[in-house]
Nucleic acid binder design. Structure first.
Lengths: 124, 124
DNA sequence: AATCTATTGCGACAGTGTTGCATTAATGAA
DNA sequence: TTCATTAATGCAACACTGTCGCAATAGATT
């Protein structure tokens, strides 16, 4: 299954790249210049996740947010970093701090979803 | 606004207390002996949260889960601990490990929502 | 230009979260 | 015990997201 380039995909990526924060589907669509169907954006984002172009986090509001994968000190941080959701400006950003955790014997961690909630730099 | 004791509330608390893990509203209702309305349970749980009898976490499936506040080594752990969601048995449990984080200057953290996802002890 | 099939739009549905409002019932006062 | 107050409930309804099937559209390759 080979991927194809489409205007809609580029538009989604453009929005995500311009803002450096994680955005909900809804927010992405609102920022897009070309208009696309909800379901299409949904599928594009999930495709991007598969291809590891963006990563997905679920915030404490229950919604999925997407952000282009961040680099920090020339090292790509995959999914194991903290996220910060600002309750005022309603954005989520990737923090450069790695999540340190320990689990009891024989637990297998396959994924992380760590969100700090509060006021970001600009809003506090 | 003084709280009143009702059978439904006790039933909810009983379920939550018997299982020591975090449960979704749906799961709670299914486990209850007396039957109650969805909206009622919803309100009861939120009331419990306000009163800090239970705490709420949002899993990476976007759903709210509730658990009675846990004690660990005779110290009550409030909201700043990790949670573990098992993808197999579909439960969430509170881990005794505290979340350690650092945020950049002038960020204000008001809340945490940290979920590790994978296989729990029994399922791995 | 023709073909293959990835991508899209539309429609539809399920599940959750959430709230308004009339009714019921827990609690303290008489 | 009875009554009055109002917290708690049940019901209905809605919004919003996530998700998928299917027919139509349009990249990519020959």
């Amino acid at each position: 299954m080979k991927r194809r380039n489409t205007a809609t995909q580029e538009a989604v990526l453009a929005v995500l790249a311009s803002k450096r924060r994680a955005m909900s589907q809804d927010a992405i669509i609102k920022q897009m210049t070309v208009d696309a169907d909800r379901a299409t954006v949904y599928r594009i984002l999930n495709r991007f996740c598969e291809d590891e172009i963006v990563h997905k986090i679920v915030a404490d509001d229950g919604k999925q947010y997407f952000a282009v994968c961040v680099k920090c000190d020339d090292v790509i941080i995959p999914g194991n970093h903290f996220h910060f959701r600002c309750t005022k400006c309603e954005t989520i950003e990737c923090l450069p701090s790695i999540v340190e955790y320990s689990v009891p014997e024989s637990y297998k961690v396959e994924n992380l979803n760590c969100v700090l909630v509060g006021l970001c730099k600009e809003c506090s």
